[in-house]
Design a protein around this nucleic acid. Structure first.
Length: 568
RNA sequence: GUGCCUGUAGCUCAACCGGAUAGAGCUUCUGACUUCGGAUCAGAAGGUUGGGGGUUCGAAUCCCUCCAGGCACGCCA
């Protein structure tokens, strides 16, 4: 299904050809309602290129422009903009099409690809903390959107289940473990022994040495140590799964760092053989002498002591995803501090001849009110589990105030949808690169650009249908008369234009913004337009409009990983 | 020291690839309820887009420079 934007863009292109002008510029939504619904600056761009008067060019383009029954006659305005205002009957027809369309008008991408999305990536033997929210919510939302647009998505949890920290965990397990505590709360006990060992080894070099020995034994496949390691991984995964269930996050594969262990020597051998890497000061290193930015930033792929590091693992991961999983693209949803690392990894992958689309999708930090990175009072990371539970608890409290008559099971269910939705939406509605200040009050507010506000719009729509005692009517075209309903219908047609835009620069906040405006338009419509008390056919038309608004809200929030309740 | 990211209303944030008079929300103020959920809506107030230069018809957006904050810079991940 075509959007207004694609139709008008095509006609612009036709008009330019007919006028003997080169194809130029684009056709975009108007920046201001005063300028209509869509605009193009084609005449300005061409005017500049050809040193001609943009206004005259605009007029020339318009003589060839066929708007058909889509728009009122286009106008030339300002320095040479061409403005298009949609006709109400065209909006009614288009909204009718969207209404009957399963995908709500959203076309699949022209070329669909297989994409591995690497997000979340918690570390074993450490509880997930607030910081994981961004990678997890963002990665999941991008996965949902890419999938909806027809891409084949493989969600991969690159769990940190291997590394030097295991020397300490195993040492602690053997010397400090409290079995009872382990039964009560396994992960907490593992974290405790890890921390305590860490402190001890900082003070006592002998402990540090013992940890290194445990690590070497683990890497050599020592049965006892491998058993302990397995157990720790299993306990951690249980904890992650609990959180993922709460967050409604699903992974297709969870190939952690350990998955790549036996592939690491092969990676280094190949890099040495092909000359991409060389020996330097006993280590195996890749230099980027021809890339100014990286010229003084070599990448070590095998340490002097023969050990591998995370660059090696990540290179093995690239190989696996491209060769074994046949990925056309890999998106890494990983924090900004690792920018340099991924630049190096991508540069090496290119040298090895990989042409897959490799993207590092970075994001900022979550801050406290004092603008410091969010930590607990004692300076520890805030456990994600606590945070999610707190969100549900606070949502529950609001529900008790606003709607105390709901059943207990409803309250639990709704509190979860609102609480978790609030946290995710607060994150996703902001530009991913900027740091943001965490605030319970803001994210759970019923006013403003929040999940509860959007959910409430949906709930109101459901309420109308409950009251009506009927489902959405099956009608042809809508009848649009009042400005508020025209505005709402127009907004609904834009869904198809907004969704694909998110992937241009991996910005779910564009979709969030749209949904907020949609909810706003719906509320304005609701305020001025009666539905149920109306005579036919207006009643059915407005009911259909409500239904469509509900479906778009639901689908849009779903693409962000947020659920909607029927009541709240 | 070098590189990267960020800086927009009192606060939290938008602004798609350079477009028109920089938009929302919160807060404050003013209106609207015998209502399909007022958990809402309508309106007002609020700006030297960190500072200064430059590029052009046109800059929050591109270039230079300075300031502030954050992050990263060969054997941790």
């Amino acid at each position: 299904m075509e959007t207004f934007q694609t139709i008008l863009a095509k006609r612009l292109s036709d008009a330019l050809i007919a006028a003997g002008l080169p194809h130029a510029a684009e056709l975009t939504p108007a920046t201001d309602p005063r300028f209509g619904d869509y605009q193009t600056n084609a005449a300005l761009v061409l005017g500049k290129e050809r040193s001609e008067n943009p206004k005259i060019l605009a007029a020339k383009i318009l003589t060839q422009f066929d708007v058909g029954d889509l728009c009122d006659p286009p106008t030339v305005a300002g320095a040479g903009f061409i403005n298009f205002t949609l006709r109400a009957d065209a909006i009614a027809r288009k909204a009718g099409e969207v209404l009957r369309n399963e995908r709500l008008g959203v076309a699949k991408a022209k070329s669909t690809r297989r994409i591995v999305i690497d997000f979340g990536s918690p570390n074993v033997a450490k509880p997930m903390h607030v910081g994981h929210i961004r990678s997890t919510a963002l990665g999941d939302a991008l996965a949902r959107i890419a999938q909806f647009l027809g891409h084949e998505v493989i969600r991969d949890n690159h769990v940190g289940d291997w590394g030097t920290q295991f020397g300490m965990v195993i040492y602690g397990w053997k010397n400090l473990l409290d079995r009872e505590a382990l039964q009560r709360d396994p992960l907490a006990e593992i974290v405790r022994i890890y921390k305590e060992t860490n402190e001890r080894s900082a003070k006592d070099p002998q402990v540090g040495e013992a940890c290194r020995r445990e690590l070497v034994k683990l890497q050599a496949g020592d049965r006892e140590n491998v058993r302990i390691w397995n157990e720790c991984v299993a306990f951690s995964m249980q904890d992650f799964d609990h959180i993922y269930k709460l967050l409604d996050i699903h992974y297709d594969i969870q190939c952690g760092e350990s998955f790549y262990n036996d592939r690491l020597p092969g990676v280094v051998d190949r890099l040495l053989k092909s000359g991409v890497a060389e020996i330097s000061e006993g280590a195996v290193v890749v230099f980027f002498r021809d890339i100014p930015e990286l010229a003084d930033k070599p990448c070590i792929v095998r340490k002097r002591d023969g050990g591998f590091n995370y660059a090696t693992t990540d290179l093995a991961t690239v190989d696996y995803r491209i060769n074994d999983l046949k990925a056309d693209g890999i998106w890494y949803v990983v924090g900004a501090p690792q920018i340099l690392h991924f630049k190096q990894i991508f540069a090496i992958a290119r040298r090895e001849g990989y042409s897959a689309d490799l993207r590092h999708i970075t994001f900022g930090s979550i801050l406290r009110a004092d603008r410091k990175i969010m930590k607990t009072r004692s300076g520890e990371n805030v456990p994600l589990r606590d945070l999610l539970e707190e969100a549900c608890k606070r949502a529950r409290k609001i529900i008790e105030e606003k709607n105390p008559d709901l059943s207990e099971t409803d309250k639990i269910d709704i509190a979860q949808k609102i609480g978790i939705g609030a946290i995710k939406y607060f994150d996703l509605s902001q530009y991913r690169m900027t740091d943001y200040v965490f605030s319970w009050e803001k994210m759970l507010s019923l006013q403003g650009n929040t999940a509860p506000y959007l959910q409430n719009a949906y709930v109101r729509i459901r309420s109308i249908f409950r009251k009506a005692g009927e489902s959405a009517p099956n009608i042809g075209n809508l009848i649009l008369k009042s400005p508020a309903e025209i505005n709402l219908a127009k907004r609904l047609c834009q869904f198809a234009e907004v969704v694909p835009q998110v992937l241009n620069d991996f910005r779910p906040n564009i979709l969030a913004n749209y949904l907020f405006e949609l909810a706003n338009s719906f509320h304005a419509f609701y305020e001025t337009c009666q539905v149920l008390k109306l005579e036919e056919p207006a009643r059915s038309s407005r009911l259909a409009l409500c239904d469509l608004a509900g479906r778009v809200l639901q689908r849009g929030l779903d693409l962000l990983g947020i659920k909607v309740p029927e009541k709240m």
